[in-house]
Write a protein that binds this DNA or RNA. Structure first.
Lengths: 223, 223
DNA sequence: GGGCGAGCTATACCTAGGTTTGTCCCGTAG
DNA sequence: CTACGGGACAAACCTAGGTATAGCTCGCCC
């Protein structure tokens, strides 16, 4: 049972959650790996920040367990790098001799928890559980929105114009006036929008625009 | 210029933000009061958790600056008490000898910041600024929703039934079938709903129900 | 140059949404 | 008892939403 830089494979099964460990201390990695495996979690262990940045982002609910002191960059730097790379895997920090400003910074940046060594097993498991639950929720929300977004991308320019005005509550004739179109044209676009977006009702469509954060861009009057 | 238990009055003007200080150390209260007043903030200083719980919740954007060690209950207890009392004024903690678990607990419970003594003036002012901004946003959102909510309360039972179904995207005839009504009845309720809710369009109405968190309560079929 | 898709419009036709007026039942507050 | 409000419905009428069919221009790609 080696546990150096290469990911430790565990429960290669279905799509159950993964815990990723980043710690330069092999004995710590081993201890954490054993702990998580004992409750049936998949584990991948890394020895440095660089290693995990090279790995591909996980596609299942997961979380990171990070020592705040890491060779090269600190855990906080890694947190910032991941955020910049738009990777939002929840992070649990562990520290031997962290201070309060560090803790505050980590928590403000969205860390799930910040545990001090020696870490009680149960505390760690609780934190991981909470982190994975958070990631699961985030992924669900993400998945829903991304489906809607890709359908939105498939709309033509004009259809988007009409969509934003319709979703803001204007009648077809008002949309037509606003865009310098005939009412019939708006109706036809509207039908196309409903089909492309897969909306079964106006209410559906409104909710989709809410999820996409589409706001009425006032003032696009045509001569 | 005394600054004991009674609120220190400052800039009794309009509705600019209030900073509330809770610290049992008079010299600390005085120093903080001076600091905040120097940048034009209104200040109210208290000597204990009990005192501030008796005071009425502020009606303008505000924040709390709390020493984690307080006579009687700790700052964390006060934070919990305020949450239980449904008071969501943002909190900034200051501590002389806090530890990391304490910090984590405070931040998890929504504290804006957690500063260690000696506190740099600029850090404190930055934290207060952020806290007040957060409170302002929360209040704005709250105000909007509470208006909608009170209008919703004014609806009759039946109107609410119809509202939830209409907002979920059903056609009038489907709503009628679901509730065992005639279509015309649904139309009439629908009009009443639009008027009472002050919605100018169905899109408006849908957004209101979203804000209220109204979800389709499936399965209310009548014989 | 012909086919294609987007954009735009018109006519015709149908369905869905919405108001007005009026009627009836029921329970309850005065 | 009467007045009132909520709930339910009908007929009549009007507006808004939506589809089908058809026709036009423009730019683009092969």
């Amino acid at each position: 049972m080696t546990d150096n830089a290469k990911p430790t494979q565990t429960q290669a099964s279905a799509d159950n959650p993964i815990v990723m460990i980043v710690d330069d201390d092999p004995s710590m990695r081993r201890a954490l790996t054993n702990l998580f495996q004992s409750v049936g979690l998949r584990v991948e262990a890394f020895g440095s920040a660089a290693e995990i940045m090279e790995a591909k982002p996980p596609v299942v609910p997961s979380c990171l367990v990070l020592d705040i002191r890491l060779p090269g960059s600190s855990g906080l730097d890694l947190q910032a790098d991941l955020a910049k790379a738009n990777i939002h895997t929840p992070i649990i920090f562990i520290t031997g001799h962290g201070d309060i400003p560090m803790t505050v910074r980590a928590m403000k940046s969205g860390a799930v928890d910040f545990l001090t060594k020696p870490v009680r097993d149960q505390d760690m498991l609780d934190a991981v559980q909470a982190a994975i639950e958070r990631d699961r929720k985030r992924r669900d929300a993400e998945k829903t929105v991304s489906g809607v977004r890709s359908r939105f991308e498939s709309l033509t320019e004009r259809q988007r114009d009409v969509l934003s005005l319709v979703a803001s509550g204007l009648m077809n004739k008002q949309v037509a006036a606003e865009l310098g179109l005939a009412e019939i044209t708006v109706k036809i676009y509207r039908g196309q929008i409903m089909r492309k977006m897969g909306a079964k009702s106006l209410a559906d469509l409104v909710r989709m625009t809410e999820a996409l954060g589409i706001r009425r861009t006032k003032g696009n009057l045509q001569t």
